[in-house]
Design a protein around this nucleic acid. Sequence first.
DNA 1: ACATGAATAT
DNA 2: TATATTCATG
Length: 314
Amino acid sequence: MREEDSNWFSRWEEELPSPEELMPLSQTLITPDLALAFDIRSPNNINNNSPTQPQAPPQSQPQPSPSNPLPASATTPPHPNSAEFASDSADLGSGPGGEEPARTLKRPRLVWTPQLHKRFVDAVAHLGIKNAVPKTIMQLMSVDGLTRENVASHLQKYRLYLKRMQGLSAGSGGAGGAGGLPATADPATDHLFASSPVPPHFLHPGRPNSDFLPFVPVAALQHHHHQQQQQQMAAVAAAAAHPQLQQQYHRQVGHFGSPPSGQFEHPFLSRQSQPLHRMGTPVHNLVPGYVEDLESANGTGGRKVLTLFPTGDD
DNA sequence: ACATGAATAT
DNA sequence: TATATTCATG
């Protein structure tokens, strides 16, 4: 019933990160090889048995992040970044055995952790279904390394999920939250989606419920040529919708412009801007809320999986 | 030319 | 299965 809805909705609302919290949330996708290069790994169990990701239950403890036992011989560290390198022609099919990271580098598969998905949902929620298109969502999420394709793909699946939910929503509030599993979402396939509450508006396409917090978490400078402009555009667009926000936007940008504290720089952070023409990364990993970690699962064929999961409890 | 969304591939 | 990539449209 509606009351249930508002119930979980309230909770969901409370969980929403405030602009301040959101702003510094510049996560960074660290590629396995990069991590390896800098010896960034969780000093925990080297044996990741769990084929699936820790479902990240409500529990938010420093879950021993399944480190990746990446075979030291992990050669071919896929540089996941810009695929805009046209000049070089070394070994084309340098598959396994080859050392040089062929330019045919593919990013590791992105794993949508509940946290990441939450950001996704939040972004969509704040944008409104209409404006929630991959590009915009991506920008709002401000996750470094996230591509439009990543978002598009996820969005596609998410829409299907919503559709299914609409059909089943009759009688049961459905989307359980972080607390319990929704009785309605049965298939394991929906587990991820079930981890984040679905704003009611999503299920009611005919009702422009726009009483959402207007904020513009423009953040994380990203690489690639025009991204900055794009972000600005996004911000401007958002500002257009909410003129009063322009201030916020500027404020935030300013914030990013000047690092909060020059305490120390993690090697890999500074390095990060090195390998490719990535722009300076405003990573504040001083914030204990989010920690980047990665896990490469040596699946069946040796495909690497990039997992970024914030340790921050949600 | 570019972004989206669905279909298809891995 | 989940995510990536391709493809047809807008």
